[in-house]
C-alpha cells in the first residue's frame, strides 16, 4: 500500500509539475509582486525607515518578503486543485484504484517545488540589490527548514479553498489576508512605533516571530525564544490545516 502510495504520488506530482513547466508564468507572477515590493520599499520608502542600525534595509526586509512570496504562491496551489476538481479530473482519479490521498499529496509536493523556485528567484534579486548574509551553513539550513515548514502549513491551508471553492476567484481569494499579514508585523518596520493595540497584534501574530527568527539567522546572530514561537505557529497551523483539509477531501469526494 505504501509502495503504491509513493508510486501514484510520484506519477501525479510529475503531472502537475509538467503543468507548471508548461506555464511558468505562474512562477513569474508569484515572484513579481514580492520583487516589486522589495524595490519599492528598499528604494522608495526604505531611506525614511529607521530600523535602528540593524544593517541595510534590504537585509531587514527580505524575510518578510519571502513570506509574502510563499503566501502568494500557495494561491496557485488552491487554483490548480480547484481547476482539477472542476474539470472532473479529481473524480476520474477517485474512481481509479489508486491511493486516494496521492491526489492531494501530488498538489502539495508541487506547491513545495513551485514555492522553492519563486523564493530562490526573489533571493537572487535581493542579492543583486545588496542583500548580504553572515549566516553559516547551519543557519541557512534552519532558514530553509522554517520556510519549508511555513510553505507546507500554508499549502495544506490552501487545499481547503481548492476543494470547496465555487469559482476560481474564490479559490485564490483566501490568500489576500495572508499576503497582507506581514504589513502588520515586524516585517517592514519595527513594531515599537505602532500604537498599542496594533503593536499587541503585531507582536503576537506568527509573521513577527517567523520574520525575527529568519532575520537573526540571516545575520548569523543567536536566535532568541522567537524560533520556538515561530516553529509552534507553523507546526500548529500545519496540524490544524492538514486535519481540516483531509476531512474536507473525504467529505467532498464521497457523499
Amino acid at each position: 500500500m505504501t509502495a503504491r502510495f509513493a508510486g501514484d504520488t510520484a506519477t501525479l506530482t510529475g503531472r502537475s509539475l509538467r503543468h507548471i513547466w508548461r506555464s511558468p508564468d505562474t512562477l513569474v507572477t508569484t515572484a513579481v509582486m514580492p520583487i516589486a515590493m522589495l524595490l519599492l520599499f528598499v528604494y522608495v520608502f526604505g531611506g525614511a525607515i529607521d530600523t535602528r542600525g540593524t544593517g541595510s534595509y534590504v537585509d531587514y526586509l527580505l524575510p518578510g518578503i519571502l513570506l509574502i512570496t510563499i503566501a502568494s504562491g500557495i494561491a496557485y496551489t488552491a487554483l490548480r486543485l480547484f481547476l482539477d476538481k472542476q474539470a472532473g479530473i479529481v473524480e476520474r482519479f477517485q474512481s481509479m484504484s489508486i491511493a486516494r490521498s496521492a491526489v492531494l499529496w501530488a498538489h502539495v509536493l508541487t506547491s513545495l517545488v513551485a514555492n522553492v523556485v519563486s523564493v530562490v528567484v526573489v533571493v537572487l534579486v535581493a542579492l543583486l540589490m545588496g542583500f548580504r548574509s553572515g549566516a553559516g551553513v547551519l543557519d541557512l539550513l534552519a532558514v530553509a527548514g522554517i520556510l519549508l515548514l511555513f510553505t507546507l502549513a500554508l499549502t495544506w491551508l490552501a487545499v481547503i479553498p481548492g476543494l470547496t471553492a465555487k469559482s476560481a476567484d474564490g479559490a485564490t481569494g483566501f490568500a489576500y489576508p495572508l499576503i497582507f499579514l506581514p504589513f502588520i508585523s515586524s516585517a517592514f518596520v519595527p513594531t515599537h512605533t505602532m500604537p498599542g493595540p496594533v503593536r499587541a497584534f503585531a507582536e503576537h501574530q506568527p509573521v513577527t516571530a517567523i520574520v525575527n527568527t529568519i532575520r537573526d539567522l540571516f545575520a548569523g546572530q543567536p536566535v532568541g525564544g522567537d524560533i520556538w514561537v515561530a516553529l509552534a505557529w507553523c507546526a500548529g497551523l500545519l496540524v490544524v490545516a492538514y486535519a481540516f483539509a483531509t476531512a474536507t477531501y473525504r467529505r467532498t469526494t464521497t457523499r
Binding site: R15, R18, R22, S23, A87, G88, I89, E91, R92
Partner: peptide, 10 residues
C-alpha cells in the same frame, strides 16, 4: 464522466 475529464495541458 459527463464532461470529458482530460488534462488539457498535457
Amino acid at each position: 464522466g459527463q464532461y470529458a475529464a482530460v488534462d488539457e495541458i498535457l
